[in-house]
Design a binder for these strands. Structure first.
Lengths: 196, 196
DNA sequence: TTGTTAAATGAATGAATATTTATTTATTTT
DNA sequence: AAAATAAATAAATATTCATTCATTTAACAA
C-alpha cells in the first residue's frame, strides 16, 4: 500500500482556494489547478470524486475551521457587551490571519453552491448565536428585536469593514486599511444601537 | 433596412440577468442564453461584441437604473434623519421592484469585472453620499467618523436584511419576509447608533 | 416591384473544459 | 525478494464553450 502524499493533498486545497479567490469559480478549472500544483489532473480525481465534490469538501473544511476560530473563548452565557466584543475580536483576528477566507466564501455565497453549503452546515453555530441574543434580551441588556434585525446590526457593519479593508480602497477611492481604532469605533456605535 | 427587434433585445437583457443570478457568472454561457431566449447564438453577437461586452453593457445599464432609483427625491442638503430615511425608503423600494438586482450585483462584485465596473461608474453617486455625511457632521447631527464607518453602519444592515428577505429564510432556518415594521425598526436602531 | 441593407439564422470552428483510461511507480506485507 | 495495493501519471475522450461563416429573411427606398 502506497501512502497518499499529505503535502500534495494540502497543496491542492491551498491552491484551490487561491485560484478561486483570484479568478472566481467562473475561472477555476481542474486543469488549471493541477498545473498550479504541478501534478496530474487525474490525481485530483483520486482525492475528489469530481469538481463539485472538490469544491464542496474544501468549503466545508474551511467553514469548520472558521466557526472554530469564531467560537474561541466565547459562550452564549457571557454578558452582552463582553460576548459581542469577543465575537468581533474573533472575527477580526480570523479575517487578519486568513485574508482569503472571506473572499473565498463570498465566491461561494454568490454561486449555485450557496443553498447546499452556507445554509445547512452552520446550523449549530447559528443556534448558539441565537441563544446569546435571547439571553441578552432576557437579561434586559438589549431591546427586544427579531434575530435577523439583531444579526444585521451586530455583524453586517463588521463584515463590510473587513471587505473594504481587503479590497484596500475606501468608498471615495482613496487607499484604505482598517485600523484598530476605526474597527473599535464602529463596534462602539453598534453597541450603542443595540443596548437598551 | 430591417429593424432590430427591440422585444428580442429586451428579452436577452432580462434572461441574461436571470441566468447570471441563477447559475452565477460561472454557469453563464452564450449558448445557454441563446437557448433560453430561443434565438440563435449568432444574434447575440449582433447585439454585443462578445461575452465581456454583453456583461459589461448590461451591468452599466442596470447600475444607472439603480442609482437613479436610489437618488429619487434625495438631496445631500437634507437633514440627516430625513435624508437617511429617504435613502432607506428608496433602496427598499428598488429592492422590492427589482428583486434580482442585488443578487445580480453580488455576482459582479465577486468577479473580475468588479474593478472595471463597480469602482468606476458610481463615483458621482458616491461623492453625493459622502457630501451628505459631511454635511450631517458639520451640522452636528451625527458624531464625527470616517466615511467607511458611516457607510458600514448606515447601509450594511439594510442590505443584509434585503438579502435575508430575498433568500426567504431567517438565520435559524425558519421562513422569513421583511415586514415594514421590522425594516423601520432596524432603521431606528441605525439612527440611534449614528446620532449624537 | 426591385434593389439595398442590416437583422437573424443554422451550422460550423477550434479551444478549453471535466472526466476516464491504461500504465507506471512507490510502499507495505508476506 | 516477490506479491499486493493504491498512488500517481500521461494521454485520450467526450462535452461545452465562445466565436465565426455562409445564407436567408424582413423592412424600407427607389
Amino acid at each position: 500500500m502506497r501512502l497518499r502524499d499529505t503535502e500534495k493533498v494540502q497543496l491542492v486545497k491551498q491552491k484551490a482556494i487561491e485560484l478561486i479567490v483570484k479568478d472566481g469559480l467562473e475561472g477555476f478549472s481542474m486543469n488549471k489547478l493541477a498545473k498550479a500544483c504541478q501534478i496530474s489532473v487525474a490525481t485530483l480525481y483520486i482525492y475528489y470524486k469530481d469538481r463539485d465534490d472538490l469544491i464542496v469538501k474544501i468549503t466545508i473544511e474551511e467553514l469548520e475551521s472558521m466557526t472554530q476560530g469564531i467560537m474561541k473563548d466565547f459562550s452564549p452565557e457571557m454578558s452582552f457587551e463582553q460576548g459581542l466584543h469577543k465575537q468581533w475580536e474573533n472575527r477580526y483576528a480570523f479575517a487578519k490571519n486568513h485574508p482569503q477566507m472571506n473572499l473565498f466564501f463570498d465566491q461561494l455565497r454568490s454561486s449555485s453552491y450557496q443553498s447546499t453549503l452556507l445554509s445547512d452546515s452552520i446550523s449549530a453555530f447559528k443556534m448558539t448565536m441565537g441563544q446569546f441574543m435571547t439571553n441578552a434580551i432576557e437579561r434586559g441588556e438589549i431591546e427586544e428585536m427579531p434575530l435577523d434585525v439583531y444579526w444585521s446590526i451586530a455583524f453586517a457593519p463588521l463584515y463590510n469593514l473587513i471587505r473594504l479593508d481587503q479590497e484596500g480602497k475606501s468608498l471615495d477611492g482613496s487607499p484604505f486599511k482598517v485600523t484598530d481604532a476605526v474597527f473599535w469605533k464602529t463596534f462602539d456605535l453598534v453597541v450603542k444601537a443595540l443596548k437598551k
